[in-house]
């Protein structure tokens, strides 16, 4: 439909074409004075210690953050769906807050909060704990900040999915004798599968590609791929490596995206 063209064209123009150009350029390698298409650059990346460590580190941090966010968000969503009362209202107002805080500020706030001699350290000092393990400029800091920033979105999607489950379905499970855990496993989890898949894949993709948080909260080594990319571009003046890393990162994201498409399509064709 013609109506869809304007934003799509914009997308193609500003993102898709440059991306395609960039990826093509990474495939062009000089060999004996000729320009040849090969995956040599990618092989090179995976052989460089610092670079493949960065890839592994990125995956680790992304998975850890996504998992932690998911568990926390699901707990929140379940509580908000099935309880009323003061706690519910307060939680409802609370979890949405990070959505309105720009990522830059969130990162900065986390650093001041978690750093050596920062707020947390001060609180622990008053409880009698003197030595605090480093919580920023490392993986822990990145994970904590990513979780902080991702809770609103994850909770919203899961909550929307849960709200689509009629109370009657839950009640009938309890009626035949299923306890809370059993009801969750047998009724809620499957019926909320679409929202779960969306949340997990979007969490993964979002955290994988995030730049600001690792940049401001991360340490010096190992670093997330997005920071490495920037360094190779701005500081080491090796744009080719930078773009190759970007393509790699996009490839990993595409896998998660594919899982999302497959998972959602299959379910939307199903009964529920």
């Amino acid at each position: 439909m013609a109506l869809v063209l304007p934003p799509f064209c914009l997308l193609v123009f500003v993102i898709v074409v440059p991306a395609a150009q960039a990826v093509l350029s990474t495939l062009r390698v000089e060999q004996d004075g000729h320009v040849v298409y090969s995956l040599a650059r990618y092989a090179q990346i995976l052989h460089t210690v610092s670079l493949y460590r960065s890839v592994a580190f990125t995956l680790l941090v992304t998975l850890a953050s996504a998992a932690a966010t998911f568990v926390l968000a699901y707990t929140l969503a379940l509580y908000l769906r099935f309880s009323q009362g003061r706690v519910s209202t307060l939680l409802g107002a609370l979890f949405i807050l990070p959505l309105f805080i720009p990522t830059v500020i969130a990162s900065f706030a986390m650093v001041t909060f978690l750093q050596n001699h920062g707020f947390v350290a001060t609180l622990l000092h008053y409880v009698g704990v003197e030595e605090m393990p480093p919580l920023v400029f490392n993986a822990v800091g990145i994970v904590l900040t990513e979780v902080w920033a991702s809770i609103p979105f994850a909770t919203l999607v899961l909550l929307a999915g849960l709200q689509g489950i009629d109370d009657a379905l839950i009640d009938s499970a309890r009626d035949v004798g299923a306890g809370a855990v059993r009801t969750f496993r047998a009724v809620i989890l499957p019926l909320n599968a679409v929202a779960t898949i969306i949340t997990l894949s979007l969490l993964f993709v979002g955290i994988l590609g995030s730049f600001t948080i690792p940049y401001l909260v991360g340490g010096n080594a190992p670093q997330m791929m997005s920071v490495v990319m920037t360094n190779y571009f701005s500081n080491y003046l090796r744009p080719d490596v930078s773009v190759a890393m970007a393509a790699l990162s996009f490839g990993i994201a595409a896998l998660a995206g594919a899982a999302y498409v497959v998972g959602v399509s299959r379910r939307e064709r199903g009964v529920v």
Partner: peptide
């Protein structure tokens, strides 16, 4: 979905191409 996926490509990687464009 393309709208979703296009935003997953790291912007740093696009610098050269976007800059040129």
């Amino acid at each position: 979905l393309s709208f979703l996926s296009a935003n997953s490509f790291p912007k740093i990687g696009l610098y050269i191409s976007i800059a040129t464009l």
